[in-house]
Every structure is written in structure tokens, then in C-alpha cells.
């Protein structure tokens, strides 16, 4: 009975406080008369100065920073996963630039670097002094090696696995 009485009294006091808060105007302080003009001036100045770049989609979400951090971590993880699966490049498939030393493209005579006259001679005779395959064949070899290397790298990725 006593508890009920206390509860009822408490509720009535709360209601009275609520009534007073709703009806009583708060002490109001008028801002200084030139404050509004000062605000307008500041806004005009802000309009003329460039606005820094923002990412509004980050600010609109409550957890924008967390989402951005999670995306960054996921991106780094994906990059690391792909790189981890791409390397090391298989040694059985040499990439195009590793041409075999026994197949040099062009060989200049040793004396061609000694005198200008000999250089001219060597330049004229360079086609004749080429050893091994002709240039077109070398390029074809390079292209084939590259295709093979790229094919092997991509075949290691799960999305390129044959079903």
C-alpha cells in the first residue's frame, strides 16, 4: 500500500515536472545584432573558397570509418592472395626475355668498336654476321614463350580452372 502510494506520488511529481518544462519558456538570450550579418559574411567567404574534397558516402554512414577500414583490409588481402598465387613464376616456362645465350641475336666483330672505319664496316656486315635464327623467328619464339608463361600463371587462379 505504502509502495503504491510512493509510486503514485512519484508519477505525479514527474508529470508536474513535465508540465512545468513544457509550459515554462526557458530563459532566452538574444544574440548580438551584428551576429547574423557576421554569419552571412562567413558563409559568403566560404562559398568563394574551394571546398576540400569529401567522401559523403563515408560521412552518411554511422560506421563510415569502420567500413572504409574493412574495405581497405579486404583489398590488401585480395591483392596479397593473388600475388601469392602468381609467384613464383614456374622455372620450366622461361619468360620471353630470358633468351638462351647460345642464340644471340646480333654479333658484332670485335674490331668494330676500335675504329670508326671498322664500325662502318661492321654495320654494313651486321646482317651477314648474324648467328643463329633470323630476327623474325626470335620474335615468334618470344611471343610463344610469353603466351605460355601467362597461360600457366592464369591457370593457377581458381577462376580459370577447367571444370
Amino acid at each position: 500500500m505504502g509502495r503504491q502510494h510512493r509510486g503514485s506520488r512519484s508519477r505525479s511529481r514527474h508529470a508536474e515536472v513535465e508540465r512545468l518544462l513544457s509550459r515554462t519558456p526557458p530563459p532566452w538570450v538574444d544574440p548580438s545584432p551584428d551576429a547574423a550579418a557576421s554569419i552571412e559574411r562567413s558563409i559568403d567567404e566560404a562559398t568563394q573558397t574551394p571546398i576540400p574534397i569529401e567522401l559523403p558516402w563515408l560521412r552518411q554512414t554511422r560506421w563510415g570509418g569502420l567500413v572504409a577500414a574493412a574495405v581497405a583490409v579486404a583489398a590488401v588481402g585480395a591483392f596479397t592472395y593473388v600475388i601469392g598465387h602468381m609467384s613464383p613464376v614456374p622455372t620450366s616456362a622461361p619468360i620471353a626475355l630470358s633468351l638462351a645465350p647460345e642464340r644471340p641475336l646480333v654479333v658484332f666483330p670485335a674490331e668494330s668498336v676500335v675504329t670508326p672505319g671498322a664500325q662502318a664496316e661492321a654495320r654494313a656486315a651486321s646482317v651477314a654476321s648474324r648467328v643463329g635464327r633470323p630476327l623474325e623467328s626470335e620474335m615468334e619464339l618470344v611471343r610463344r614463350d610469353t603466351q605460355r608463361a601467362v597461360g600457366q600463371v592464369f591457370s593457377r587462379l581458381p577462376i580459370f580452372e577447367p571444370r
Binding site: S42, I43, I51
Partner: peptide, 22 residues
């Protein structure tokens, strides 16, 4: 203080104007 309140009021409106698109 009143001075700080006026400064903050001004800053609030400038920021609101700069970000009104959001």
C-alpha cells in the same frame, strides 16, 4: 561564454552550408 557561443553558432552555419549536399 556568449562569445564562444556566437563563434560556434557561426562555425555551425558555415559547416552546414559547406555540407548542405549531405
Amino acid at each position: 561564454s556568449r562569445h564562444d557561443a556566437e563563434d560556434l553558432t557561426q562555425e555551425t552555419f558555415v559547416r552546414a552550408w559547406n555540407r548542405i549536399r549531405s
